[in-house]
Write a protein that binds this DNA or RNA. Structure first.
Lengths: 136, 136
DNA sequence: CTATTTGCAAACACTTTGCACAGCA
DNA sequence: TGCTGTGCAAAGTGTTTGCAAATAG
């Protein structure tokens, strides 16, 4: 009989998903997380990854970035902004301080603001030269 | 033989879709537009509505709001911000001036910014009292 | 007569769900 | 025992596409 004492974060697939997400900064999709976990030998199904992410998002442990064609997930729960490169389709965290005064302006209009999402669209530094090349 | 001289906006289903979208301020989904057009006696298919919206968006005549579960469409092409009420699920235009200085801050980080999208999330004025009632 | 637009149904991509079963309390 | 978590496959939802027929130029 084999006995394995599990540390807290090894209980349940949900925590494996969270662990994997926490280890990266590239805002993966559900499927990317699924493939990464499989790659690492984890025996998990795509349905479970979806279930885990939904549950984690509902508890506020991860943030969902509703992007087409597939949602991306962010382990950073404190409010921050994103850049979406329309060439490499990558999402990057931005080092721009959250601006609560924007919320205030909307509150003044009679809304009750929970938070705001700010996404910049364009070309990331790496893709700008490639784009110029492409146009020639 | 019946001859009908068509005015410009009556040519093609694409223009019917644009016309319908221009007539409203509630950021409808593709299906909502489809149903509205059918309601008005227009003989159109859902596929055509999707094709029309895609083509219009590519030409910059309408803006796409990528929201879950379905994209919403905005006839206002000049940049402006939105409020998404998480109770009635409505999207409202906000009367807050577009802030190009936000783009500048990101350009300074080495990105090439095309535009940014800013969505506030919370309760719209109409839904705040309802929400309080619900909590009791 | 050729090019474009359309409707229909099928295909598609992403996500959720029903169900049976495994593991744990 | 019963509760929770899981895999699998099927269903669900929003969107796109292949194709043949209709229409425009």
């Amino acid at each position: 009989m084999k006995v394995i004492i599990m540390s807290r974060q090894e209980r349940g697939k949900r925590d494996r998903v969270l662990q994997e997400l926490l280890s990266r900064t590239d805002h993966p999709t559900a499927e990317e997380l699924y493939l990464a976990l499989r790659e690492k030998g984890e025996d998990i199904s795509l349905a479970t990854v979806y279930r885990a992410l939904r549950s984690l998002a509902e508890e506020g442990l991860v943030a969902t970035l509703p992007l087409a064609p597939a949602d991306r997930f962010d382990p950073l729960t404190h409010p921050h902004y994103h850049f979406h490169c329309h060439r490499c389709n990558q999402v990057l965290d931005l080092d721009l301080p959250y601006k609560p005064e924007l919320d205030q302006a909307i509150e003044d209009l009679g809304f009750s603001v929970h938070h705001h999402t700010l996404v910049f669209h364009g070309l990331c530094p790496a893709c700008q030269p490639k784009e110029e090349l492409w146009r020639k």
